[in-house]
Nucleic acid binder design. Structure first.
Length: 577
DNA sequence: GCCGTTTTCGGCCCGACTGTTTTCAGTCG
């Protein structure tokens, strides 16, 4: 994939153009191109080879030419030229909160600052204040901004932030005169990582809500506070923004504050063309507010059906909505089972009984208990005799209980040569087989792809667990030809897992969408090793929704009886997906 | 630089908060 290469150059180029003070609309064109290219599920080189670059939204004749130049030469003439005009380190200081292109240019021209390090030194020495528009406070903010940049520059996994965000919402509901409070921003869109927490409230007494918010016990620092808007930071450095609007504007504000920014811009452009104006207070024709109470109202007013938050990314949802072909997304309440849970038989903490009880509490009908295979010694992989004991225990439990059904499964290791860690005769006697790579991450792209293809072709394998192996913030995905993998999975009717464990979310949204486009079907597994981790199912559903999946594409929506039928069909080689 | 059932030229989303300003530019989301 050379998409990242193209994006890196366009992104740098846009930053340089900002500092040089070039046409902001031209700059936005580059930034929009980056956003669209970043989320392409396929290699931009392939699209270029087909001559279809201008089919990408935001890519016209000129940008298509520039992309081709980058693909051919590895760089861009225009970029090389503009790079000469701006010191390379100067672009970095745009990352400091509070410093934009104007300030960066000023700092460079007045003080000769060329890098983040130089900025940090002069800020510490107190040499910034006195510049036009920069006083003692701005200087202090820059000092702290740099420190912050160093400390918490990474986004955090959604699964870690979501509970905190919900607890803040609950606190505001209980302790302020807010009529409504909701999480908005990227969390509401279920984006896999979170930069900051955005919360929206409706109230007739906004200042009371704001004051209570900035006085919450977990607030370590108030970053900004106005009558309707405030930002705070928690002790561990997480930023939380709150915006308060009046109740009649709540729907419009929810749209505005949920984003994505790119989606909002598209909606507003659509409104402008109809002589309307959309802001966080409503949809307006002239002075008259024609919508705003609910999100549905806002979308209808601009001529769109309601668009679910998870797909508000400007990844084609506006076009789909206009053409009446938005998918009916799979919902958490559609989910009838968990496809991947570990028990005490391997490295899980829970007994089969406890897993069944937890599943019942979650409203599930079935759970596939998939423990590790012998090669994964660190995780207590089961030898075959133990596997048979587990199978008997599962059968006993199912016979006793009329409620939740357990399936005896395995997460069998795909060995370095692509063979599986149990013999086919063993796999044939299990209810569920998910296969996964847990070692040998560093193989070549071709070898790794062949390894996974071999597992996909084994008729006993129902699904591939965490197909790319990435761990958020910890490990990059393996080198893989995903296009080939998805094509083979579709051909053989092998399902791809959306692993819902908060650090994995693998497949991710973009890859799952690409797989779906090839006809692949999916299982969602929490990979829970503790009972409470079975609650990660909603993260997996979030990924599925972001990938535009419907319930028909997700195996977890099948009842126990339907599932058993599908599993058997797969083993008989009836590859019907 | 992109884009078009009001346009192939002339538009391009919109408002809050901060700091330094004495009416607003810069930044952010």
């Amino acid at each position: 994939m050379r998409n990242a290469e193209v994006c890196a150059i366009f992104r740098q180029l846009a930053a340089i153009m900002e500092i040089l003070g070039e046409d902001p609309y031209r700059i936005r064109a580059y930034q929009r191109a980056v956003q669209n290219i970043e989320n392409l599920p396929e290699d931009i080189a392939d699209i270029a080879a087909r001559g279809e670059l201008t089919k990408i939204p935001g890519i016209g004749k000129e940008l298509a030419r520039k992309i081709e130049e980058i693909l051919a030469t590895g760089t861009l003439q225009k970029y090389e030229e503009l790079k000469q005009k701006v010191p390379p380190g100067l672009v970095d200081i745009l990352q400091v909160p509070g410093i934009g292109p104007k300030t960066a240019k000023l700092l460079h021209q007045q003080l000769g600052i060329k890098s983040l390090a130089e900025l940090e030194q002069l800020a510490r020495e107190g040499k910034l204040k006195g510049l036009p528009g920069i006083g003692a406070k701005t200087e202090e903010n820059i000092r702290r901004g740099i420190a912050l940049l160093r400390a918490v520059e990474e986004r955090r996994p959604l699964g870690l932030v979501l509970p905190l965000a919900r607890s803040v919402v609950d606190w505001l509901r209980q302790n302020t005169p807010a009529e409504r409070v909701d999480v908005a921003g990227s969390i509401r869109r279920f984006k896999e990582t979170v930069g900051d927490v955005d919360i929206l409230a409706a109230s007739r007494r906004p200042e009371a809500v704001i004051n209570a918010f900035t006085g919450m016990p977990l607030v370590a620092e108030v970053l900004a506070q106005g009558p309707t808007k405030a930002s705070v930071r928690t002790g561990d450095g997480l930023q939380i923004d709150l915006r308060v609007v009046s109740p009649e504007s709540y729907g419009a504000a929810l749209c505005y504050f949920t984003g994505s920014k790119a989606h909002n811009i598209r909606v507003r452009e659509l409104a402008v063309r109809q002589g309307l104006k959309v802001n966080e207070y409503g949809v307006f024709r002239g002075e008259e507010r024609i919508a705003g109470l609910t999100e549905e109202e806002v979308y209808v007013a601009v001529g769109l059906p309601y668009i679910p938050p998870e797909i508000r990314e400007d990844w084609g949802e506006i076009e789909a909505a206009l053409e009446g072909r938005l998918p009916e997304l799979v919902k958490l309440s559609d989910i009838k089972g968990d496809f991947h849970v570990h028990s005490r038989y391997s490295d899980g903490a829970s007994t089969l009984e406890e897993i069944a009880d937890k599943a019942r509490a979650l409203g599930l009908q079935w759970v596939a208990v998939c423990d590790h295979s012998p090669s994964l010694k660190v995780a207590g992989g089961l030898d075959v005799p133990t596997l048979w004991k587990k199978r008997e225990a599962v059968a006993r439990l199912n016979a006793q209980s009329s409620g939740v059904k357990l399936l005896c499964g395995t997460e069998v290791d795909i060995l370095a040569d692509g063979t599986l860690d149990y013999a086919d005769e063993v796999l044939a006697q299990l209810d569920v087989v998910v296969a996964a790579i847990h070692m040998g991450f560093k193989q070549s792209r071709q070898a790794q792809t062949q390894r996974l293809l071999a597992a996909i072709r084994n008729p006993h394998v129902h699904a591939i667990a965490h197909p790319t192996g990435r761990l958020l913030g910890e490990r990059e995905p393996y080198e893989l030809d995903l296009e080939q993998i998805f094509a083979e999975a579709a051909r053989t009717g092998t399902w791809m897992e959306i692993n819902a464990y908060y650090k994995r979310l693998d497949l991710n949204d973009v890859n799952a969408r690409a797989a779906a486009a090839q006809g692949v079907r999916f299982v969602i597994g929490t990979d829970a090793h503790l009972l409470e981790q079975m609650e990660f199912m909603e993260l997996g559903v979030g990924v599925a929704r972001r990938a535009w999946l419907t319930r028909e594409q997700v195996i977890n929506t099948l009842s126990y009886d339907e599932l058993i039928e599908r599993l058997r069909a797969k083993k008989k080689g009836k590859w019907e997906g």
